[in-house]
């Protein structure tokens, strides 16, 4: 079931085309991730969907509801954590949550939210005195207070330490278990791969591609990159380079000193052959790896650009 559909969204700020043409639909219960470099138009897209920015063009439907006729109903259905977390700095997390809870008819209990975002300990400190990560968690808490069906998280983990980031991943996965729909943006490919049912890659205001992480990677070539480095130095690497070039499944090699990179469509077979060769020659090999393709490669393949965090 589709809970949100956006079609041909467009938005310009003066001469800047922030969003050129973005369409997608989000299914109930999924984690839908929008990923893209800085300035790609992620926040602008979300803000149009959240009713904060009016699109120059395009349609936004929450099932039967749209902003022109059902603004209040939509606001009750969604929970938003904006990229720049705004809250009352002179109130405590508890007071912020209580205040936001009063805007809704069926809010979740504040203690529950504090527990979820792990702020119970800090519930009586002024927000002003919280760390960046704690603020971020409170912002997520504020998005959850209304027990929304659809949750928008704009870069929920940017600037968090690994522990806190994993903490937020747990929250998102927990929401998924509860059957909530989450739409999030991120710069971290790893995060997108781990959490999302589907990923929408955007660049310069356009959707580059959209699918489940595994499908996206499979769409790429089945070639893998093998890396080896030789204990016996450059000579051994040169020999092995020559040998592997003869193999059928190898398309390309690259050597740098004692390190060798081989691109092969059947990496396991290639490795087997290579090890036979090194054993015969009794070359010592250290650091062997097959690099898995990631969303980063997907991005590079589609845009021809380096992925930069």
């Amino acid at each position: 079931m589709t809970v949100l559909e956006v079609r041909n969204l467009q938005k310009s700020f003066g001469s800047i085309k922030a969003v050129q043409d973005i369409s997608f639909s989000v299914h109930a219960g999924e984690v839908f991730t929008i990923i893209g470099p800085n300035g790609a138009g992620k926040t602008t897209t979300l803000e149009m969907i959240e009713g904060l920015v009016s699109p120059d063009n395009g349609v936004i439907h929450f099932g039967e509801l749209d902003w022109n006729k059902h603004a209040v109903s939509i606001k009750k259905k969604i929970g938003v954590q904006p990229q720049s977390s705004a809250m009352f700095d002179l109130l405590t997390p508890e007071e912020n949550l209580n205040l936001f809870a009063s805007f809704y008819d069926h809010a979740r209990p504040t203690e529950e939210i504090l527990e979820i975002v792990n702020l119970t300990e800090h519930r009586k400190n002024h927000v002003k005195k919280l760390s960046g990560g704690q603020r971020q968690r409170l912002a997520i808490g504020l998005a959850l207070i209304s027990d929304p069906e659809i949750i928008f998280l704009d870069e929920p983990t940017t600037g968090l330490d690994p522990q806190a980031r994993r903490n937020i991943w747990d929250i998102i996965l927990h929401l998924k278990e509860l059957g909530k729909t989450t739409i999030l943006t991120t710069h971290y490919m790893e995060e997108a791969e781990k959490l999302s049912d589907r990923v929408c890659i955007v660049d310069q205001g356009n959707v580059i591609t959209l699918d489940s992480p595994s499908a996206l990677i499979e769409k790429l070539t089945d070639e893998r990159e093998i890396r080896l480095s030789f204990l016996d130095g450059e000579k051994a690497a040169e020999d092995a380079d020559g040998f592997s070039k003869e193999l059928a499944s190898v398309s390309k090699t690259e050597r740098e000193g004692a390190a060798l990179k081989i691109w092969a469509s059947k990496p396991e077979e290639t490795l087997l052959d290579l090890f036979k060769f090194t054993k015969d020659k009794s070359y010592g090999v250290e650091q062997v790896s097959i690099r898995e393709m990631s969303l980063e490669d997907v991005f590079i393949a589609f845009t021809g650009k380096e992925w930069r965090d």
Partner: peptide, 13 residues
């Protein structure tokens, strides 16, 4: 400036 007005407007407040 802090975006609080915007934040409140995302709620049915």
């Amino acid at each position: 400036r802090k975006g609080l007005i915007k934040r409140l407007r995302m709620t049915p407040a």
